[in-house]
Simulated scan of single mutants.
Amino acid sequence: MKARLSVLDLSPVGGEATQAEAMRETIAVAQAAERLGYDRFWVAEHHNMRSLASASPEILMAALTQATKTIRLGSGGVMLVNYSPLKVAEVFMALEALAPGRIDLGVGRALGTDGRTGGALRSAGSEAFPQYFALLNAWLLDAGGVEPITEAHPARGIHASPSGPSHPDLFLLCSSPETADFAGRAGVGMVFAEFIARADGGPAVSAYRAAFTPSAFREQGWAAVATIALAAETAEAAERLAAPMRASALAGLDGPGADGERPRFPRIEDALAFLEARRDDPRLAGVIARAIVGDPETVRRGLAQKAEATGADELFVMAVGPDLDSRVRSLELIKGG
């Protein structure tokens, strides 16, 4: 596979685990990813979702700076409009101080939650993103000693701490060609989330490359695609392990359950029964197509084909599976272990 390979972990709450346990499992997955030679390990931000535990990627990243030594660590991502750009710059400059040269700041323009929860977060709304993004750029480059904030800048006299000598690398999370175009014009890296967009990443990568303009962050463009992949020793075993993920996704298409959450399937047998009862649902094929599932050779071949088809420089594999062991084993098999 020519494209680099990295890991995106959403801190999923598998089986009967608690959210607290899921947070700790993410640290174990990161350590496995480092041992296996993956390039990056990114964590996510989701709010008010019982099935996902990572609402504060910066906290997880701080723990990961102490639990790992070589792998790059990043946010996939920080939902920028939920926060003060100055505070985000300061948090990630602090992470850069803890792990110099290993920190990636991936930001998104969405809320990472529903509108009501966004209000509780005091989110400024997605329309504020361009202004917030420009301020974040300025404070990071100023703190990193690259481009000092001048007296003519709206943020004059305000500086993010701690200062450099380095700063995090900056990326924009994308789910459309339009957002990829924004990332290209801004001269930052971009990651297209296929699992969110439910669309092929090729058009977004092309839009990014066409729009890319060199910046203080990078001279050349860098485009990644994030996708779901699950490998097991046999195709049959992989299909079985994928059942809870698929059942939850299919049930979620009918809307939230009585508790307002997407239904979860802690037991594989319950997920298999649910899928069997709905095997004629025309939406099931689309759910299955969202992930590359199979034996190691099948998954590695699927990832190589995706990299070639999209033109991505790097693929982020979402670490999925019904429990910690299956998630780690999948990453081992994908890397040829």
Rank of each mutant, 00 (worst) to 15 (best):
K2A: 15
F182N: 12
E297A: 10
F192I: 04
L140A: 01
P100G: 00
V205C: 00
K306I: 02
E127Y: 09
S215P: 00
S166V: 12
F274V: 01
S6E: 09
V81Q: 09
R240W: 10
Q66V: 05
R283L: 04
T234V: 14
R262A: 15
V78H: 08
S84E: 03
M190S: 10
A183Y: 01
K335N: 04
F129N: 09
A204C: 02
R264W: 07
V205P: 00
D104G: 11
A152K: 12
L140D: 08
R329L: 11
A273G: 06
L230K: 14
A138S: 04
N48A: 05
P266L: 03
V225L: 01
A134L: 07
G337F: 13
G74V: 03
E236P: 12
F217A: 02
G37S: 04
D295L: 03
A134N: 06
Q131P: 15
A62G: 10
A22W: 02
A291R: 12
E332F: 14
D270H: 08
Y208P: 03
M93W: 09
V328E: 11
V81E: 08
D254M: 14
R209K: 09
L105T: 05
T310E: 04
R156M: 11
D281P: 13
V328W: 15
Y132L: 13
A99G: 11
C174I: 02
V146Y: 07
R301I: 13
R24Q: 15
A242G: 09
S126F: 15
L60H: 10
P165Y: 15
L172G: 02
R327E: 06
A124H: 07
A226G: 04
I103Y: 02
L111E: 06
A33Y: 01
V317L: 07
G336V: 15
F171D: 07
F133S: 05
S326V: 04
L111T: 00
T18L: 00
G37C: 05
T150M: 15
A243G: 12
I292G: 09
R40A: 08
M49K: 06
A138R: 14
S84H: 04
L80K: 11
N48E: 03
T26K: 13
A63D: 14
G76Q: 04
R240A: 13
I103K: 04
V107E: 00
D280M: 03
H159P: 03
S75K: 01
P12K: 02
R262E: 15
D313H: 05
D313M: 00
F265D: 14
G336T: 11
L86E: 12
A120K: 14
N82T: 07
A223Y: 04
A53W: 00
R40D: 10
G337A: 15
F171S: 09
L303K: 02
R329E: 12
N137F: 07
V317M: 03
G106T: 02
L333V: 13
H47Y: 05
L275I: 11
A223N: 05
G14C: 13
A55Q: 01
I59T: 13
D114F: 00
A211I: 06
Y83F: 05
G294I: 11
A307T: 00
T70R: 12
D323G: 09
E332S: 12
A183P: 06
P12R: 01
A289P: 01
D281I: 08
W139C: 11
A62Q: 13
S161N: 13
M318W: 10
A180Q: 08
P85R: 09
P322F: 07
L230M: 13
